[in-house]
Design a protein around this nucleic acid. Structure first.
Lengths: 209, 209, 209, 209
DNA sequence: GATGAATGAGCGTTCATTCAT
DNA sequence: TATGAATGAACGCTCATTCAT
């Protein structure tokens, strides 16, 4: 009985603690970047001991990986599934994407994580592979499908976005990078920039009709 | 005469060694990044002693800055000046830019350095400021001018690129990042992607006419 | 109980290790001086790792400061407080001081630390300020009081020692310095020298009566 | 001929250059201490190249040693010889010494060198031996002779200063040290202190008569 | 499971000294 | 003789990871 109860409590607690570590890590990474964040910072923010982190994650890197999964992969999966299910026009999808990026991405933890991926993952090929498999590839496939459908329906007059769905999110990359490097010295309305880019792309796709 | 000769050779040698340090540093940075490259790596690659680097550069950061200057800022300045002088159509300019990026940037040291700027400069605010002042701002101003002229001539029907010249190079950012993170697992024809993007942008600009 | 016991042992151990670091540092400083002692020397002598020192002290300088505090400031404070409380004659106080210097100072760790203060503190202004505030100024004020009382009682016929209490310890400085620089080549009975000096001063003070 | 002329010029020049190195070294040491002065500073101040110093001195330490010789040993020798030759009373000698210390020592390069001896020589036993042999021992012998003569003449009633001539200069040590460590935080009239100390000593010596 | 004390490899920079010219 | 470029050992401090309790 005692055992059982303990196990039960343990399980709940384990999840709670895992979340608190991830949340603390996000705070720390957001403030200082991956390399400059000390495990002790994370532990302190999570109100646990440094060694305890190693009971939940095998390394600092693994914490980052899990953060990517919970903060980006899962929500993006949800959004993608939701949008796919509805058979919407490319225009509508782009509008919803633009809205999501501006409201649920820019200025949130997700943007921070995305920035960390862009800047730190180059030296961790396994994490790069993970991001590709779980995030980038699915998103690109999704965008391809949207573009493909739009071509078939006559909504798009070009298949460029089928070949290079990356272009649909190019301005998001620019926004993330600008925010990190130059926002202080030359602030830009990044939301407007992204929206303008998506408009341009759509106008170009229609101009071939 | 002896003096003169000595001075001359000294100067040549100094330049040669300076170049060999820059080249060694580029190799090291390309392999491990800016933060993770040890001065000793650079020295070893250049076949000199660690302290010798400090006869040529005041700090590791300064080495990187010089690398940026000689590999990117100067050539980009040249290109920009050359293009500005000729009063070309936006279409021609974009074509030349696309050509330059595909032939003089992708796959060269310049791409590596650009990648380093994108990924590591976030933690070195002075270098970020330097890049903005010497590289990004001038390039954006140049692109604005090109777009502005095109608007005035009736070549462009929208001033979006005047407001957000960043969009003109968004696909280059995508290419740099893709090359670093995902080219191994999913190779893309990045040159074609960039060219397609510039085509799309121009088609969109003309569609407003 | 277990908690309590653990805490108690932990505390003991912490104190023991702290002492062993201080002791190792004293050995190292005595042998090579403050600036020339490497943290690694101290760690090796204390049979711990270099990083461990930083669990007990924030810097090498802080180790030295703590050495000064525990070895000199505290015992000198005690002596001073004790002597002040008893309203003794200047003659008695000088006798007790002379005794303390010869038995509790010369030839002990305290002398070594005093020598370090004299020779190395010039390049560490914060430590100099600390020594003045915690050690030198209080001692000078104490000596002033003793001399002042002696004047008021008619024991001293001059107030020179009220103006320059430093003179009362001048011979101790000489002793410390001689011990460090010349004791090998020309040994002196430094205790006798100090005692003689104090006798001379007292005789001079009385000669004005 | 050319050889001879060169040799002649060389000799003069050699002396001049040697002096300019010593002078530059003094400036540097005065400003930063022995350890913190870079050979390059000294070379720059002397308007020569770093390596040239090694044509005149085998090491930085040797420069310091020579500085001691020319700045302190020689002038002190002169003073000593001069005073000895005149068969003066102890009172007169002490008066002249006090005058010399206050006017030719405190606040001059000599004080700086003396401070360097006190603080840095502890770790250079050969320099310590040199200082003892060439400076301290002769001065102590001189003071002994003065005190001995005074005893024999009935000027002094005690032979303490014969046994411990060091006491005669104890206040100078105090002054040098105070100047270096505490003059900023608690300025003292060090000249007056030294004069007071010599007065006290003489009064004490006479009180035994 | 949780702790946190201990570890020790890692690194940018300085500078006395050497030596080829 | 004079130069000054080159050397390379030296050092305080950090922090991811381990492990005894």
């Amino acid at each position: 009985m005692a055992q059982k109860f303990r196990a039960a409590r343990s399980d709940e607690e384990r999840q709670a603690r895992l979340q608190s570590i991830l949340s603390a890590a996000l705070d720390a990474f957001a403030e200082k970047g991956l390399g400059a964040s000390r495990l002790e910072d994370i532990a302190t923010r999570a109100a646990i001991a440094k060694g305890t982190i190693y009971l939940y994650f095998p390394s600092k890197q693994a914490v980052f990986e899990e953060l990517i999964r919970t903060s980006i992969v899962l929500p993006v999966d949800s959004l993608r599934t939701e949008l796919l299910a509805q058979d919407l026009s490319a225009q509508t999808v782009f509008g919803l994407l633009s809205h999501w990026v501006r409201n649920e991405f820019l200025g949130t933890d997700r943007e921070i994580i995305a920035r960390l991926i862009l800047s730190e993952v180059g030296r961790f090929p396994e994490i790069a592979a993970f991001c590709h498999r779980e995030l980038v590839h699915p998103v690109m496939e999704f965008l391809k499908q949207i573009a493909q459908r739009a071509c078939e329906r006559g909504e798009f007059g070009s298949n460029v976005l089928v070949r290079f769905p990356q272009l649909a999110v190019a301005s998001v990359l620019v926004a993330i990078t600008w925010n990190d490097l130059f926002q202080d010295v030359e602030p830009l309305d990044l939301g407007a920039m992204i929206e303008s880019h998506l408009d341009l792309l759509q106008r170009a796709m229609r101009s071939d009709l």
